[in-house]
Design a protein around this nucleic acid. Structure first.
Lengths: 215, 215
DNA sequence: ACTTAATTCGAACGAGCGTTCGAATTAGCC
DNA sequence: GGCTAATTCGAACGCTCGTTCGAATTAAGT
């Protein structure tokens, strides 16, 4: 989960960008991140205390600070990793597909699959959107903007191809709304899997925008 | 904003259900609720302190407790009032319309109009969904369920009328997602008004579900 | 086995939290 | 103007918060 590798004290940044093998430090940090994600998901960022995180991850309160310098940076690490991963997977999946409609369907499927497979992390990402201040927030916001721009690109492509007319902005944000809202209602014991839900949402959304012919 | 009227100490509930004229107490409580909504919207329920609320509303910290017995009850009052109002407005607007598609459009318009006219309150309602514990939470959840059931009813009506086939649950929750997500992106200086956005969303959503003919 | 560096922890810090209480102030009524 | 009840407030309560520090423990290299 954690990219850096093999340096001791917090604050001093790691340098090797290609970690040959995951160090002990990295593995432990990843574990903590997983537990922290669960706690942030359950109690919210503000509502979760460092003592909660300590209890959940089985490490002493002070021990946590060996791995990151503040609670805020912890949230940053979770958000950055989650978002980077979903963008990277999307890009790789889009590589071999050129049909405009198929590309939108892949976007939806990728988003929902990752969302449901990593519900806690994605809830933290969606729900704690404004929790990070200044520098931390800006970096995550940049990834988010890139992700948003990709979706805009896909829909503009579709619009051009089929000569459609609709507001790309509203369409993209509506689609994100449909998908992201899932964290408030999805129940794995009741609801279908990502492929099925993605299919239904894709049907509704795509019929919706494809029906918007040029007058 | 506050329904009760004309009793002094917190805890003792008010009785007159038809307040002839808004008492001083009610007016002051409403003011506090408005300011508190703003603060909860800006900093989140957990992130906002009673001292923040005191500063914003211009009343001393202790003075606030003359009007409600806890921070949690304050959130409850805000959520309950907001939700009740939107449901009540919806019902009155639906009274004179019988066409199934028109009724869905009214639902969307009502939701977005109220959302954009009371952005702070609706963000608190959407974002602080799980903040209330036990009793308080249950009562708000009941209103929410009623609102949800109304929307299910509208879509089932549409399905029956036009002999469509789609999952009502997914459709309803997708629609709520599209609409509620607006609190994360709407910018009054850039984006259109509720009628225009509601039109676009209604087009996408309705073409989406209306296209789902029985095979 | 010994040394050095990496990791973990108990205990404490000051600050801020939600809430309470009794006294002070104000408004409404004769 | 004086009385009563409604309203407001300063000061403090006990508690939890995020963070720090120095010492104790563990792992790694020789």
């Amino acid at each position: 989960m954690a990219t850096p590798s093999a340096a001791p004290r917090v604050g001093s940044r790691r340098q090797r960008s290609a970690p040959v093998s995951e160090s002990r430090y990295d593995r432990r940090l990843s574990e903590i991140l997983v537990h922290a994600t669960e706690v942030f998901c359950k109690k919210g960022y503000e509502g979760a205390s460092m003592r909660d995180l300590s209890r959940e991850s089985g490490m002493s309160l002070a021990g946590l600070y060996y791995y990151f310098e503040s609670k805020e940076r912890l949230l940053y690490l979770i958000q950055k990793h989650t978002f980077s991963t979903i963008v990277q997977r999307l890009k790789s999946r889009l590589e071999n597909v050129s049909d405009a409609e198929q590309r939108v369907r892949i976007f939806i499927l990728n988003h929902l699959e990752y969302f449901l497979a990593n519900q806690a992390a994605m809830k933290v990402l969606s729900h704690e959107d404004e929790a990070l201040k200044n520098g931390f927030g800006a970096e995550v916001a940049a990834i988010k903007r890139e992700y948003y721009r990709i979706c805009v690109g896909l829909l503009d492509h579709l619009k051009r191809d089929r000569r459609l007319q609709f507001s790309t902005r509203i369409a993209v944000l509506s689609l994100f709304g449909m998908m992201n809202w899932i964290y408030t209602w999805h129940n794995p014991r009741v609801d279908a899997d990502a492929a099925a839900i993605g299919g239904e949402m894709g049907d509704i959304f795509l019929r919706g925008v494809l029906g918007a012919d040029t007058k």
